[in-house]
Design a protein around this nucleic acid. Sequence first.
DNA 1: AATATATGAATGAACG
DNA 2: CGTTCATTCATATATT
Lengths: 174, 174
Amino acid sequence: LSNYLMRMSLPLNTSNHQIVMTEAQLETLRRQICVYSTICSQLVEMHKIMSQQAASSRDHLLFDPVMGGQTFRPSARQRWTPSQSQIDILDRVYEASNGNPNKQKIKDITAELSQHGPVSETNVYNWFQNRKARAKRKQQPLPRKEGDSEVDTDGESSKEKKLRLETESKREEV
Amino acid sequence: LSNYLMRMSLPLNTSNHQIVMTEAQLETLRRQICVYSTICSQLVEMHKIMSQQAASSRDHLLFDPVMGGQTFRPSARQRWTPSQSQIDILDRVYEASNGNPNKQKIKDITAELSQHGPVSETNVYNWFQNRKARAKRKQQPLPRKEGDSEVDTDGESSKEKKLRLETESKREEV
DNA sequence: AATATATGAATGAACG
DNA sequence: CGTTCATTCATATATT
């Protein structure tokens, strides 16, 4: 995409003090600019949406209504939801260490994570447990390799997020 | 930002077959396009970063949009949608076995289902998990009797929700 | 189209 | 530790 964006050119056939462009050139220019405009708009829109999502999933226990009575169900979140920065740190630590972190290690990690949001040692412990367990399950289906793989919608990982914009602009007026 | 992006203009003083622009106009055009280019680059970069973050936590099974050329479409099924025949089979198996299918069972079921459409073992696993969880939830909202002497049809309240963690270490986000 | 519901998938926490 | 449960998120489908 970046490459495409960059493939923009301007006519430079100068003559004296004035630059002359054919209508075809101008039309090309208009179209290119229109593409730019469209892409920018869509990127801005996409960014807005993603920002909202990121923010909505990040509102931790902003307020804890201490429910004095016990009859009302707690509408507050009761499950730790690590922030993105916390996940990054955990990922990094997990990659670095090939084993279950001991008590002290967990304390350290918890301390570091707590600078990016509320977290307890239990949370960290569980996270590593789950991480390991699920990494292992991903490997179990390996011992089998028949002729080939069926069609599938299985746990394949592609580090891409979908783009939902289309670069097309069918307008003539600029 | 959007407003700013849109404030772009092109000289339209046509003369015959050629369009004449002064150097000042061309310079302005260059600058404007440069702004567009910069903004687009930055937005693309930002989008990349956010996509990576989003993908790092949970890598969806999407295939690459492969935006080649000038058009790219997001068209991709990102979620397994079982066919009716598959659902029938799953329902039948679920009714027959009131328990969690073990690994081998899942393989068998998957094998059978794959004759009616693409499916993975993970899909089957999830299906049973969800099925059970939602069947249980349908019964959870047991209307609490306000009065008393509720005829306990079954002492099924063994699964008491004791605990409920305490998200200690709740410090203020700064 | 906009909203509501159903449901596949992800994941923190608990259990044995 | 491996497995299972419970909750939540995101999207496909249905409804208006």
